[in-house]
Amino acid sequence: MWNELTLSTDEYSNMLHLPIDKVSERHWGLTPALAESYLEAARVILDIFHESPQRFRLFKQQEAFNALVTWAAADERCRAAWANKDDAVRDGAYLFALAASEVMLGWYAIRRAETRTGADYYLAPLNHSPEDLEDVYRLEVSGTRLDEAAVRQRLMEKVQQTRDGNSNLPAVAIVVGFKVRLILLQMVE
């Protein structure tokens, strides 16, 4: 574990923060209980590799951002609840993907819709009606605790998988690399 960041108060307050707290207040497709559960999952995974705060690199095709991530360390109960790290990576990645969509696209999860194997979130600007999904983007998420090459490979797979799928397009593919502090976003039209 390491913490490379030593920031002055000014630097800290001027830096872009990845908004992983109180996500349900802005993303109406997510309930407070589920948002809290995703946050717990993310804290457990972050604690494996890092100490708060950390700088994450965010890429949207050619655009790059840096964003600060701060979190409270997970306690014993929380770690026990998320003993299966694959589940924690998957749910923590949902939270980070929603926060990344917020800062990189200005889009929020306006609706959750069930599928045979889970649930999809649909993204749109704030105040878009959740009753009209004609022009909104479906969110495709993947998380990993592997290295940077694996994060990039995962994005290519995710984009291909989305294109090969049942054509419920358009979509946004987001991959979160917790260990390497990297978030990649790509639009799939």
Binding site: A113, E114, T115, R116, D120, Y122, E131, D132, L133, E134, N168
Partner: peptide, 11 residues
């Protein structure tokens, strides 16, 4: 709204 309809029926 066919896409909305499709998503809701699946859901």
């Amino acid at each position: 709204k066919t896409r909305t309809l499709g998503i809701t029926v699946i859901s």
